[in-house]
Computed example of a mutant assay.
Amino acid sequence: MSDALDRVVDALAGVNEGDVAAALTALGVDGGRQGLVRETPRTPLPPPQGSTAVDSEVEWV
């Protein structure tokens, strides 16, 4: 970590969440919390050998 970030972490050690939120609000940081970003499950690709059951109309150019 950079020296500045180390100093911020040291300054906030032992401080409760409400105090941190108040300090960030005083600095003008938006106080809205963002929800957790969840990874969207993806359908796995077929094996490299291919599958005879898969039909595609995609044309590679």
Rank of each mutant, 00 (worst) to 15 (best):
P47W: 15
V9P: 07
A22S: 12
V54F: 13
G31S: 09
V58F: 12
E59D: 10
G14D: 00
V8K: 00
P47N: 15
G28Q: 07
P44G: 08
A4Y: 12
G28W: 02
G28M: 09
D55P: 14
G50S: 10
G32Y: 07
L5W: 01
T52L: 13
P46V: 13
Q34E: 03
T52N: 15
P41M: 02
T40F: 13
D55S: 12
E59L: 15
D6V: 00
E17Q: 09
D3W: 06
G50R: 07
Q49V: 13
T25L: 09
R38Y: 12
L24S: 06
L45M: 07
T52E: 10
E57H: 15
L5Q: 05
L45Y: 14
V29E: 11
D30R: 01
L36C: 05
V29L: 02
W60V: 10
L24I: 03
M1S: 09
W60Y: 09
W60N: 01
A23V: 01
S56W: 07
V15S: 09
D6P: 05
P46N: 11
V29F: 07
P46Q: 11
V29S: 08
G14H: 02
T43F: 04
G14E: 00
E59A: 08
A13E: 07
D3Q: 03
V9F: 04
V9D: 01
T40R: 13
V58I: 15
L24A: 09
E17P: 08
A23Y: 09
V20G: 04
M1V: 05
V9T: 05
G14T: 04
R42G: 08
E57S: 10
Q34N: 04
V58W: 08
G18R: 05
V29C: 07
D6E: 06
G50A: 06
G31A: 09
D55R: 14
V61A: 10
P47S: 15
V29G: 06
T52G: 04
R7T: 04
L27D: 11
P48L: 12
D6F: 01
E39W: 14
S51M: 14
V20L: 00
S56E: 14
W60D: 07
S56D: 12
G35Y: 03
L27F: 01
A53V: 11
D10A: 01
N16W: 02
S56P: 07
P41G: 00
Q49W: 13
A22D: 12
V29P: 00
G50K: 02
D19R: 02
R33I: 08
G35D: 09
M1R: 00
E57I: 11
